[in-house]
Design a protein around this nucleic acid. Structure first.
Length: 265
DNA sequence: AACTATGACAACCGCAGTCGT
DNA sequence: GACGACTGCGGTTGTCATAGT
């Protein structure tokens, strides 16, 4: 009953209200109204009292997310990103609670930022952490080869390497960053087909110098969605060189040559 | 230059919780 | 306790800007 009553109230007069983006004039009306009342306001009365053709909810939302003093409209800093990720792991999608820990940021800003920037990064990071914690690499198929002491199997594969051209077009190795990676990966100097560009992808796979390009402190997962992208940054991660592939249907193993003085991934 | 895809963000909607009657 | 009004929250959609083709 509450719901129907409420929705009736809204819809019965909905056609009178303006929708969409707020104009500068509307912003000024709302701000001057709230300032006139020294910050004390009643959202139901606000539209009429301020001469706005907006719903009370719309006025409140505009004020809380945009016009309110102290709102930080700047880019999120790395520290803020880390805080959001950490709090999200603890609290889940409780955006208002997360926002209360980040002065100047609203729940809506954080929510948008999460969905557009942090979600994908966090998923990949979690996948890796899960694998690290369980030490279950069954599906990872990563093989590192100690050049000084290769096993018999290593010798066999390395003596019969499958070149990159054997990787079917559009397939991809999913690079998962190592624990040694900085908290926020730098995407500078990365080879990345994440734009879903066919050309970018094929450029990597068809490049004869692929072995030179595919360097990085990384793990190579099953090949997955090309959109996952390669995330190699030679300047920060580079320690491994892909020596060969073993491509068996859905299974893609990569042999990595371990350079001297480097720990295994 | 025109068109399309994608990302970023503002705004909307429905629901749940709270409070007063 | 039931009801209605209102507020706040989280999910979703719409819109605009920019990059890519």
């Amino acid at each position: 009953m509450v719901k129907s009553s409420r929705s009736t109230t809204v819809t019965s007069v909905q056609t009178c209200y303006r929708r969409g983006a707020w104009s500068l004039e509307e912003d000024q009306k709302l701000m001057s109204h709230i300032h006139r009342h020294h910050g004390f306001w009643n959202w139901v009365e606000t539209p009429n009292a301020s001469g706005l053709l907006r719903t009370a909810k719309s006025c409140r939302l505009r004020w809380m997310n945009y016009l309110r003093t102290g709102i930080n409209h700047g880019n999120f800093t790395e520290e803020e990103d880390e805080t959001i990720i950490k709090l999200h792991q603890q609290l889940g999608n409780r955006w208002s609670t997360i926002a209360s820990r980040l002065p100047g940021r609203t729940d809506n800003h954080i929510k948008n930022h999460w969905h557009t920037n942090l979600k994908k990064y966090n998923c990949l990071k979690n996948n890796h952490l899960q694998e690290t914690e369980t030490d279950d690499h069954d599906h990872v198929n990563i093989v590192t080869v100690d050049q000084k002491n290769p096993s018999e199997d290593d010798d066999l594969l390395l003596s019969n390497p499958q070149k990159s051209s054997n990787i079917e077009y559009g397939s991809n190795c999913n690079a998962v960053w190592s624990p040694l990676m900085p908290s926020q990966p730098s995407f500078d100097n990365c080879i990345s087909p994440s734009s879903s560009s066919c050309d970018a992808t094929s450029e990597i796979y068809n490049n004869e110098n692929i072995l030179d390009k595919m360097e990085g402190l990384c793990m190579v997962d099953d090949y997955t969605d090309p959109a996952a992208g390669f995330l190699f940054s030679n300047s920060q991660w580079g320690t491994y060189t892909v020596a060969s592939y073993y491509d068996a249907g859905d299974d893609l193993s990569a042999y990595l040559l371990m350079q001297e003085n480097e720990e295994r991934v």
